[in-house]
Amino acid sequence: MKITTNVFGPETTLKKEVFLELESPTLREVLGILAGQHGAAWKRILKEDLSLEKGCVILVNGRNVSSLQDLETIVHDGDEITFTVLMAGG
């Protein structure tokens, strides 16, 4: 399956495509794999134990996972996962 990842923070990266040898995994499983593949920008958002750094959240298809099933949220082929700081205002 293919997913897309974004990181919005002091370092911003957009639309990185990631191919996973999984079928309908949980977000926890996906993060476990991504942990070894991403650079410093991503690591500023997520800690080694997959908990979030202060002021950061994960969105799956534009929804904060805490309003879904948190790390047990099922990730599907084509989904977009965004790691972002809690921006405010425009």
Partner: peptide
């Protein structure tokens, strides 16, 4: 505030 555009697009 330009980063807000990335968030509103994703959301």
């Amino acid at each position: 505030t330009s980063l807000t555009l990335n968030i509103t697009h994703v959301g």
